[in-house]
Simulated assay, not measured.
Amino acid sequence: MQTDALLDRFLADLAPLAPVAVWAHGSLAGGDYQEGRSDLDLIAVLPSITPRTVWRLAKLHARLRAEPLSRQLHCTYLTPAADPGLRHLTWAHEELFKRPVSPVTRRELHAFGRVLDGKPPAELLAPVSDRELAEFVIRDQRDYWRPALDNAALWTRDVWVDLGLLTFARATVTLREGRLISKREALELLPRLGAPVEVVEDIRRRRYGDPGPAVENRAALARGYLGPAIDELVAAYD
């Protein structure tokens, strides 16, 4: 399996930096992973992160580019005492930048995180309360996804339609029930939430089967649905 080979190579190359822990979250940990289609979402806890560490990590990821699926590998680097809500060094989309570890990611790690090396998340990460999780989900829908609907050009890309609809369904369940669901569960739920069925089926085919021809006007259908749907969700829980 190419995924296992990539993870083995990553862990071996990371070993000289003496990681305290390496965890997987997202679909790789949650049981909905699709090789070649899903991202490999990782968190690595290192003893310290110095300028030399950053240089070594950049070299590590550059070497990994020769491996199949390397574009899907995303990893955020923390130190044991770090506040996860701050911005942390991250490799994703083939570059290094900084971003926080969201409450959703932290809840995933506590609920079903996969330990690839070292200590479990419970020993290094504070738990996420239901209130903190809900507040983050509301902000994400209200301040990120809702304004993004005004940028029509973004939605011509499949990833925006896919993630926009899936994230909305997952946010709905988190706010209603306080739990996280997989992308597969989100696809099952979306038609019951009133999402355009042809777009949902298009996402399902591309994630789990043969893509086939694109649905005409999928961007307009997704945006037309998500605008009022997000407004209604936020108004109910904000």
Rank of each mutant, 00 (worst) to 15 (best):
P100V: 08
A236T: 12
A82T: 05
S27W: 03
R206V: 12
S70T: 10
L226E: 01
H61D: 08
E123Q: 08
A81H: 15
D158I: 14
L57M: 10
D32Y: 09
P47Y: 10
V173N: 01
D143A: 11
A153T: 12
L109S: 02
D202T: 08
P127D: 01
L190C: 02
R157E: 14
A24I: 02
W23F: 01
L7C: 07
T3N: 13
G30D: 07
Y77N: 03
V200N: 01
L73S: 09
T174Y: 07
E216H: 12
P100G: 09
A236H: 12
A29Y: 01
P121H: 01
A134D: 08
K183Q: 03
W160Q: 09
L189R: 02
L89M: 11
P228F: 10
L14H: 05
D140T: 12
R37G: 07
T105F: 01
L6I: 09
C75L: 13
V161A: 12
S27D: 09
L57Q: 02
A24F: 04
A44G: 09
E177A: 00
H110E: 05
R206H: 13
R146Y: 11
F10A: 12
P120H: 02
G85C: 08
L42S: 03
G85W: 11
I203W: 01
P127C: 05
E35H: 08
P191E: 00
F136M: 09
A186M: 04
Y237H: 15
P16V: 10
V45T: 02
G224V: 04
R37I: 14
D130H: 14
E185F: 00
A58V: 11
I230P: 00
A222T: 12
A44M: 05
R207K: 13
H74I: 10
L116F: 06
D162M: 15
R223I: 11
R142W: 06
R63P: 11
E135C: 10
A111Y: 01
S129C: 11
L14S: 05
N217E: 15
Q141Y: 07
E201C: 04
S102D: 14
G118D: 06
I203Q: 02
L189F: 03
G26I: 03
A58T: 14
L64C: 08
L221H: 03
W155A: 03
P80G: 09
R176S: 01
R223L: 11
P127N: 04
S102K: 06
G118C: 03
G118Y: 04
V215P: 02
T174E: 09
I203T: 08
A126R: 10
L17M: 15
R205Q: 10
Y237R: 12
A122Q: 11
T79Y: 07
E177P: 00
F97W: 15
I43H: 01
L175E: 02
E201M: 04
K98Q: 15
H88T: 05
W155C: 04
V104D: 05
W23S: 00
T105P: 03
T76C: 11
G227L: 14
E232V: 04
A219H: 05
I230F: 01
T90W: 12
E123A: 05
R131H: 15
I203G: 02
R99Q: 14
S27Q: 06
W155N: 03
E35I: 08
C75F: 07
D231Y: 06
W91K: 07
H93E: 15
A222H: 03
H25N: 05
I43L: 07
L193K: 00
R56A: 15
A58Y: 09
A148E: 12
